[in-house]
Design a protein around this nucleic acid. Sequence first.
DNA 1: TTTTAGAAGAAAATATATTTTTGTTGCCGC
DNA 2: GCGGCAACAAAAATATATTTTCTTCTAAAA
Lengths: 233, 233
Amino acid sequence: MVPRPIECPMSGSATQAVYELLRANLLAGLYRPEEKLKISELGAAFAVSTGAIREALARLTAEGLVTALPQRGFRVAPVSAADLRDLTDMRIEIETKCLRRAIENGDIGWETAVVAAHHRMAATPIAAADGSFSPAWTIAHGEFHAALAQACGSVWMMRVRDLLFVHNERYLDLARKTDRGNRDVAREHRELMEAALARDAERAVTIMTAHLAKTRDTIEAALLAAAAMTEAR
Amino acid sequence: MVPRPIECPMSGSATQAVYELLRANLLAGLYRPEEKLKISELGAAFAVSTGAIREALARLTAEGLVTALPQRGFRVAPVSAADLRDLTDMRIEIETKCLRRAIENGDIGWETAVVAAHHRMAATPIAAADGSFSPAWTIAHGEFHAALAQACGSVWMMRVRDLLFVHNERYLDLARKTDRGNRDVAREHRELMEAALARDAERAVTIMTAHLAKTRDTIEAALLAAAAMTEAR
DNA sequence: TTTTAGAAGAAAATATATTTTTGTTGCCGC
DNA sequence: GCGGCAACAAAAATATATTTTCTTCTAAAA
């Protein structure tokens, strides 16, 4: 057989590629909440047909990252302080439950994965040139938290966790320039890892809860500040 | 203005209608797990273009009701006893948490909705002519459980609850002919409502947990029996 | 007899064209 | 001058056609 030409399409199909790209852009805050996502514009931008865009948007709609208004197209899902509080409450519930079970069930493979993920995250610069989170750190951060939860041994719990985490990422970016100096995120993560590896469930849960709540408060402040600014214009 | 012709399209767009219909069929167990969902066949069956089908399937993929294999089309998501156990564990966590919060926060409107939903469900025949659950009862049942949880006051909690509930429905149908006689489901539901209205959180949670576990066991038995039969053919 | 290569057919992925709907602007009547 | 109606433009929804990819059947060689 003739070896295939180099090509190697990014992710199988064009639709899949568009979906992933669009999703990444959405999570990175490239489009503002409530912004209209014009199908033909996106099609032109990504150089694919409108059908592929529609399919990607349909998937994102089911995920809740975009909203679909019948006959009126798609928009970026809205954000609000109330939603953030609700989301964080739920995240605290799920993340701590995952964490407890992971600490109980985790084997040496889990420990190794956590240490590895933490090492990568710690070695990655947190800020990009423009003041936002660097994409590499965002990925490493997500993988660290995922690694921590992984050993919970439940596919559904991980699935729900991932869903909530992804939605939080959308908010995370909004707080990018807000008092990051007031906070030692690296230390929080390190302590989290240490408590988990020490199998100290109570301490780990306490740290995780504080970590998530602190993140929420930081974002909420940025969110309210932005809202006030919009109000006053 | 000329009054529009009767039409009144079921749910806005054709895609939306196809999505809802396909989803209902999926939950009713009309297609078997792992079965291939041919786009052109579905398009012919529903008398819409392939694009509409693709869009509906994309949304269902994001929901986890169907799986997409790149370049190889779509299939009905698989089921397994392990997945059912995992799913039920998660459901018990979430449903009981919703229930506790609803019992704490629920106002007179909530009580009214619960009573109303229960009344409708109790008055609906549970079995259809062919031995499966009647569609009307399935809907009423879903609405009863939703009404119970509604007052939890968290959009995200309800969203996760709904996701899990929907996936459970897919399993529910598999156990349709299995020893339903051994079980007094109506009594379980009545006791659940009574405990909730009496604001007895502990009792309500106990009943709910038993209810969900019992459902799981019934389905699991049917699932294993079906697997054994497939094995032996 | 089994395995593999090739070709034909089927189905999915994608692009393009058409139709329908919606939002906007300008004009006419009040 | 203000409100409503009509025509136009933009965008979404849908259908159809084309291309690509995968699967299966057959035939030939080991």
